[in-house]
Design a protein around this nucleic acid. Sequence first.
DNA 1: AAATTTTCTTGACGACTGTCAAGATCACTC
DNA 2: GAGTGATCTTGACAGTCGTCAAGAAAATTT
Lengths: 206, 206
Amino acid sequence: MTTAPTRRTPADKHDERRRELAESALRTLGELGYAKASLREIANNSDFSHGVVHYYFADKLELIVYCVRYYKATCVHRYDGVVAEATTAEGLAEAFADKLVETILDEAPMHRLWYDLRSQSMFEENLREAVVAIDKTLEEMIWRVISTYAALAGREPAMAPAVVYGLLDGLFQQALLGHLCGREDALANLRTEAVTLLPMLLTPAS
Amino acid sequence: MTTAPTRRTPADKHDERRRELAESALRTLGELGYAKASLREIANNSDFSHGVVHYYFADKLELIVYCVRYYKATCVHRYDGVVAEATTAEGLAEAFADKLVETILDEAPMHRLWYDLRSQSMFEENLREAVVAIDKTLEEMIWRVISTYAALAGREPAMAPAVVYGLLDGLFQQALLGHLCGREDALANLRTEAVTLLPMLLTPAS
DNA sequence: AAATTTTCTTGACGACTGTCAAGATCACTC
DNA sequence: GAGTGATCTTGACAGTCGTCAAGAAAATTT
């Protein structure tokens, strides 16, 4: 009713706090991982005390699922700019590979958290629904890249979206682990691997 | 000195107990995952009490590293038979794909434990050395398949061992998660994906 | 058969966990 | 400005955890 006059409805304020908590929780989760990030540690790295978590979230799992949903919602469009600005297939491939490297450099803790949660979902059924949904959006994200890459090359993708995503995800995960282990060639390798792989994902040139 | 007369030296008996503990620990770890598998739960699923763990292992981490090393040591040769008995490239590809599916059906808990530990190693430095070493042996295992596959086809592998392993590992992980989620097409898809992918990993036919 | 070493159980410790309730603090309304 | 509801802090709860020490039990040696 009073949407225009009041700047924030109580519900908005409630959601805003959930986002604030989620953001500081993500910092802690990215540093410690799912298992070792306690609610007290999460609250300590925020502006609130440990009890407030249960005021905004039912339990730890709801907080974590909210966190990873919140994070992945923002980075599903990571490659949208790359796709929009590409004019040639080769240019898209290189820009995409650069972006892969860049996000490992900038957001390694978030990525390892994602792989941590996806592994945990193999044990905890309560996590699976959220994880599978996010995995699907990541697959679609990659598919947007590949399909426009194919269009620019005047060819067709030779594999299903899930397969393309699975292949790239394997390389990405390997590079992330290598990067965290201090292997300096991990990211450079990922870049050349991506540029090499992309043409092989299309049907042979007409 | 007295190797022949005595059936077991004390050291052998010690190692045998470590293996026994490792085997029952692996059952529990495969069921609960790294984080939720407590030493008490591990001991409950064995013939011993919870205190005995610290008699054979310094701490929990040493037990777990021993466990995963023990397990992976056995399954690094999973595809050796497939490689040895293959006579044609196509036959090897299909037998390999079948084996991929079979091991997910038979040992899903062990595989999810492996991915769990590999993810944990992104957070815990103490795990990294063992994880990276095992990853390397898996890479070599896959490379034995691919290089003989290439030889049978009269061609050359078109990618480095790490790349081939990363690609296949991505598909395998995806299929494992799909299988655990109850998606019935996950394993059949993995099979056709593997058979389709293998030829693309070689240089173009001469 | 006694002595000694190895092996295993039991019980306890301090620390940490998720959860929740009681009350303080704040913001807002009448 | 008193009252009222939302928001947050504090402290405590019942568990669980890894670890370890003391002693029982078993195996081995003398």
